[in-house]
């Protein structure tokens, strides 16, 4: 296993479409709920412990070879917002393209055939990690980290926030990312034997309603 492969997959410049999504930050900025670095930090913390915990567990379970179809259904059930389901599938499709070009693997081909319009992104991420020779912990780290780094990058653009402040937010969240990842891997191992119902289902109400509001805007910078 190559540690450097993790850096390739986790790199914010990995060309998988993430740059066009704010992870809900654009809606929260418009609602006046993110105004500065401290409110960005609380937003990211909330996202990490809800949607982040869910996607990290899904990614880890996919990396452990749990059935991707079942995981995709579990992701659907945990994503009531149709705007967020559409964004997750779009990002899954884009990640699939990048992953197949980067780490060609029959499992990725099979998933692409099964979901031509895209599986949920964390499911694809877990299989991409497998294809890259990485493990469940690596997949969970990628998922949990991009769940907070995406909004932080977006808020730098949306509020012209000092990029050093945004990066410091990510550094302060690092110990919590570690804990979320550990929990995700533990529960993913259980999901492999007990089924996806044991996966976490934590939700953040304003992320869902915010995503639905965002989807109705005629003018916006980010796709979600």
């Amino acid at each position: 296993m190559s540690r450097a492969a993790l850096l390739v997959l986790a790199d914010g410049r990995f060309p998988a479409g993430g740059h066009a999504h704010s992870g809900g930050a654009e809606a929260a900025v418009r609602a006046g709920r993110i105004t500065d670095a401290p409110s960005l930090e609380e937003f990211c913390r909330g996202r990490l412990h809800t949607g982040g915990a869910v996607t990290a567990a899904l990614a880890a379970a996919a990396a452990l070879d749990a059935d991707p179809g079942e995981l995709d259904r579990a992701a659907d059930a945990r994503t009531p917002s149709p705007a967020l389901r559409a964004a997750a599938r779009r990002l899954g499709r884009q990640l699939m393209r990048a992953a197949r070009a980067t780490w060609p693997h029959p499992e990725l081909d099979a998933l692409a055939r099964r979901f031509p319009k895209g599986a949920h992104q964390p499911v694809v991420l877990g299989l991409a990690a497998r294809a890259a020779g990485l493990g469940p912990e690596d997949a969970a780290y990628c998922s949990a980290y991009e769940g907070v780094s995406g909004p932080a990058t977006a808020v730098v653009r949306l509020l012209s926030l000092d990029p050093f402040d945004a990066t410091a937010v990510l550094a302060r969240l690092a110990p919590e990312v570690d804990r979320v990842v550990q929990d995700a891997v533990d529960v993913a191992r259980r999901a492999v034997s007990e089924g996806p119902d044991v996966l976490p289902a934590r939700s953040a109400p304003l992320l869902e309603t915010g995503a639905e509001a965002h989807a109705t805007w005629p003018v916006r910078l980010f796709a979600s």
Partner: peptide, 9 residues
């Protein structure tokens, strides 16, 4: 240029 996935799609 850098991340063309959405355009390819």
């Amino acid at each position: 240029r850098d991340d063309i996935s959405a355009n390819l799609e």
